[in-house]
Design a protein around this nucleic acid. Structure first.
Lengths: 340, 340
DNA sequence: GGCTAGCACTCGCACGCCCAGAGTGCTAAC
DNA sequence: GTTAGCACTCTGGGCGTGCGAGTGCTAGCC
């Protein structure tokens, strides 16, 4: 589609623009990148590339700037993720392992690391628990009329809720309920499966209506009000980007990040693969973010629960670096969290 | 110290400045605020007020602007918190009550409400658990070699941790440990008291060294890695303030808010009183925040655990409104969280 | 046919300039 | 003590200008 030399020029323009942030002119390309042709020739090629949609001009007589299409071509053809520096990777994994007991803490730490290492904005979504397997689920009476309802999954996550019982429960009853839970619910996945089984149980345990009611609630929306579902790190980094010197733009962007729903949707469904996904400019379907790019990857926890990590930065980012960073953090997170 | 008329003028200047954001001149005061004297007279008075340190001039031949001292005088003498609108208050309390089961969720909701209602930045610190009373504390075996360690306090907060045991525990051992916990630790407060008792127990339970070790850790830093200790809401509101059109200033400020330690210190020790505390400009001991004011109040949960809510905005804020808002949210939070 | 030198042209940006407007402080008179 | 008058100061915006970077085009060269 575009010949060898055009490719080299496109690449040179993009890499120059990424490192300087200034529109790049034909002189620069001819001089700095070892082309043995004159600026005029480069100009002709650049005019072609512009016509093809890979480059843009902010205004006549400025240099060229990559378009979304240009970046896309660049990412697809020239960027191969370098595996992250091994020492860095170990460092991250170890630091995450320290908080692995508490998923929320690990997720927050990941967001922090990601934003600090990238100098951009980090997004990490908590794991989807729908397919986490229930390892244990139990009622523990806690004085008087209260009982603690706990769920332990293979992800190590513990959902719990203090139940207010209408009546006190005697040990035999507790025993019976717990046995039922153990026999019927353990081994199921958190989502619909457990809910269905639980609804059956509700019949048999009719006399404890309120109790069962409340346990159903917990299973129905795991982590809905306990752990947060989304962590944003280093939001202020955005303000360092020249493309956001415009306060209003920055405010719009940061504002839209406060809409959890939007961002979760943006991060997309976790996908069982290790490679990062790159979304560029207008490919992001959120108006405020259209001069950003987003790099995401999935992490896995337990048997089959997935979450997403991502970096949101200016389109003008070092894709190779960010991609490997994001992949590394996703992997570190997966490996440091409880295995099964 | 300053006479009646000077007071009126000071007040007029501040209120005018608060509502317009522009330095206010003698004409404006004389005209808008029903003084029956000429601008020249006002000018003389304003010169005095400046000499006394209550007003400042951004530059010769601009109007006057209140100094920190001026705001301080204003807040101490002229601002009395209007009790918040009753309907709003009820609305807030009810909305908080919905999340009261999970303290973290309630705290996040409070931060959100506070930032939305004030249009400034909201800070809410999680409750200090040091003086929460332990209602129950127990080990629950969870399959194989794992056990769940749970702590329930009078605040309703449940600390828990999945313990990896070196060896499996038989029911009798579990029984014994739990009885010891119940007899010795329940009723203590979370902080030093419980820790001391627990250390004694450590001797008696020497053979389960690892287990006791881990429980000590949990008690030692309650909520340290589970719930977050600080929630920031509406950070972007800051960008709407004219005093932060300067990106670099805004970035410094938002950056310093990411230092949890700093902010927690700033919020200060919760104090058992319902009135708000106002900290103005340089009274805030954080360089980046010196053209802000901070209004904080304490909320209470359980018997004796306190946390702080606060609003950080430009010095030029409507103090009466913000003070009553902050007090209202603190009260709503206290009343909607589990009583004992 | 592709490449290049030369050249006129186009912008954006920084700089300096100037002026209007707002507000002051001072003085002298009431 | 108050006020009118006046000279003075400072900011901010509007405007013109020159410079530099970079382009597109044309004509000639290999």
């Amino acid at each position: 589609m575009i010949d060898e030399r055009k490719q080299r020029i496109l690449r040179a323009v993009i890499e120059d623009y990424i490192s300087t942030g200034e529109p790049v002119g034909s002189r620069t390309i001819a001089r700095k990148h070892g082309f043995n042709v004159s600026p005029a020739t480069i100009r002709n090629e650049m005019a072609d590339l512009e016509e093809l949609g890979f480059l843009e001009q902010p205004h006549t007589s400025a240099g060229r700037v990559p378009s979304d299409l240009g970046y896309r071509y660049y990412v697809d053809h020239f960027v191969r993720a370098v595996p992250a520096d091994h020492r860095l990777w170990q460092f991250m994994r170890d630091r995450l392992a320290l908080r692995a007991r508490e998923i929320g803490a690990a997720v927050r730490a990941a967001a922090r690391m990601l934003s600090e290492a990238s100098n951009f904005l980090a997004l990490v979504s908590g794991p989807h628990l729908e397919s986490a397997r229930i390892d244990a689920l139990r009622i523990v009476p806690v004085g008087g009329q209260r009982a603690l309802f706990v769920v332990v999954t293979d992800t190590g996550i513990v959902e719990n809720r203090l139940l207010e019982l209408g009546q006190p429960l005697n040990p035999a009853e507790v025993e019976r309920i717990n046995r039922l839970f153990e026999e019927r619910v353990c081994g199921q996945t958190m989502g619909r499966a457990a809910l269905a089984v639980m609804k059956d149980l509700a019949m048999e345990l009719r006399q404890y209506g309120d109790l069962v009611e409340q346990t159903l609630e917990v299973l129905d929306r795991p982590a809905a009000d306990g752990e947060e579902r989304l962590v944003v790190g280093g939001a202020t980094n955005i303000l360092r980007q020249p493309e956001f010197r415009d306060i209003d733009k920055a405010q719009m962007l940061l504002g839209s990040l406060e809409q959890e729903e939007t961002v979760l949707e943006l991060l997309g469904e976790p996908q069982p693969r290790t490679r990062a996904r790159v979304v560029i400019g207008h490919e992001i379907r959120v108006a405020e973010m259209q001069d950003c790019s987003l790099v995401t990857a999935s992490y896995r926890i337990g048997g089959d629960s997935w979450g997403q990590v991502g970096v949101l930065g200016p389109r003008r980012m070092d894709y190779a670096k960010i991609i490997s960073l994001v992949e590394a953090v996703a992997r570190a997170l997966s490996e440091s969290l409880p295995r099964r």
